[in-house]
């Protein structure tokens, strides 16, 4: 989310939108989310989403692509995301078996704005994948709208910008 950082008001960088404690909670949450994705813990990852009106979106061709004018790599509402979960968990979904071994590093976590209990946050990740003898490296930026609840942060909206979203990419056999 380099663009968002560069656009952010000086206060977002200098003072920060949240205090130190909240920043650490946030980083722990995103690290936890990453761990669930690395370990293919689909149900527990799904539990992190809140509400019926959710969006899980990986644009294609351009970070700013309009989903009504262009194709997306993923553009899920809740029903579509639930179907995705069915397949990820299905032993007969061949692309996902054997499962990829994954390690990802989540960095550059910057809250951009807070409105009520909702926090807009950006972060970056680098991810190493090994599956069927082939190693892939993936990079991406994430943009979230998180809701702060009593059980912890929950995801309402997540957009992932893969660095290679306009290149021919191999199967994406895991969650990002």
């Amino acid at each position: 989310m380099a663009k968002q950082i560069l656009k952010a008001a000086p206060d977002v960088i200098n003072k920060g939108v949240v205090g130190v404690e909240q920043q650490l909670r946030l980083e722990r949450f995103l690290t936890y989310e990453a761990a669930l994705m690395d370990e293919h813990e689909y149900d527990r990852w799904m539990d992190l989403w809140i509400g019926e009106d959710i969006t899980y979106w990986l644009p294609c061709n351009s970070d700013d692509q309009d989903p009504n004018a262009g194709v997306a790599i993923i553009y899920d509402d809740r029903p579509r995301l639930l179907e995705r979960m069915m397949r990820l968990k299905d032993k007969a979904a061949h692309a996902y078996r054997p499962r990829a071994r994954l390690i990802r590093t989540v960095t550059d976590v910057v809250p951009l704005a807070q409105k009520g209990d909702e926090l807009e946050v950006i972060s970056n990740f680098s991810l190493g994948e090994i599956r069927t003898g082939t190693e892939n490296i993936w990079f991406g930026r994430c943009h979230y709208f998180l809701v702060d609840t009593e059980e912890g942060f929950r995801i309402r909206w997540k957009k992932v910008l893969l660095l290679n979203n306009d290149e021919p990419i191999p199967n994406l056999t895991f969650l990002v």
Binding site: V71, I73, R84, A93, A95, I169, N171, L172
Partner: peptide
């Protein structure tokens, strides 16, 4: 999008 593309329901199993 549901069936075609690298993270869809269909193409990844073909590619695999």
């Amino acid at each position: 999008e549901a069936f075609y593309g690298p993270a869809s329901n269909g193409s990844p199993d073909d590619a695999e």
